[in-house]
Amino acid sequence: MSAGNIHSEELKPLRRNRVYWAVADGWVLAKRNLVQIPRIPELLVFAIIQPVMFVLLFRYVFGGAIDVGGESYVNFLMAGIFVQTVAFGSVSTGIGLAEDLQKGLVDRFRSLPMAPSAVLTGRTVADLVRNLAVVIVMLLVGLLVGFRPEAGVAGWAATIGLLLLLSFAFSWIGAVVALLIRSVEAVQSAGFIWLFPLTFASSAFVQTDNMPDVLRAFANHQPITQVVDAVRGFLLDQPEGNHGWIALAWCLGILIICVPLAVSLYRGVATR
């Protein structure tokens, strides 16, 4: 209708294999989610305020009453804060996905000849970047309130690597939850129902030794404790035993189960 129209014969899609499109389409959607982060600043602000409040609460309100052996409490605390921040980030993965479902965007995506995994990888990869940013802010807050890490380059690399892996793995759990319950509000509430016991019945804020037997058994064998103990070891340059390997195994195990599960739920989500 306007001059210089593209001929419909020119609108030829590129031809590549499936793996190429899984990556390329995922990247298109990751970029979509990333450019939105500064456009909805309130989301990022709340993502930061909440863990900052936990830092202040535990550092100044509860910290004095919590005995963690020889280490200063703020040094003990920060590993827990990093892990909690990253774990809670999985709720935004779920909320973002539930919003796409509610607004009909997923219908639009599913009517396109794109890789079916891309909506999920785009979301989880973007959340990985956002989580990394929030963790860096938490590190700065920690330094302000007296956190004194003793990690070397290897320790920092291991810390960042493990936190990112945890972030990615938990985002996929968030995706599975969102695809199962779909409503934004329900996803928000459900996220905290499984995350609260997991983060508080762990070594994130206290030593598990003082917990009652059953709770201690749970706390010592769940993934958050393994990741916290590993990160704490890396940051404070203490022997972390085999917590690092167990944490790695947990994250990979979660991914092996949740990635195919989420993709299959996504394919079926509108096929009901």
Partner: peptide, 10 residues
């Protein structure tokens, strides 16, 4: 543009 990319246009 996003939709175009997801239709696999250059």
């Amino acid at each position: 543009e996003m939709v175009g990319r997801l239709y696999h246009l250059p």
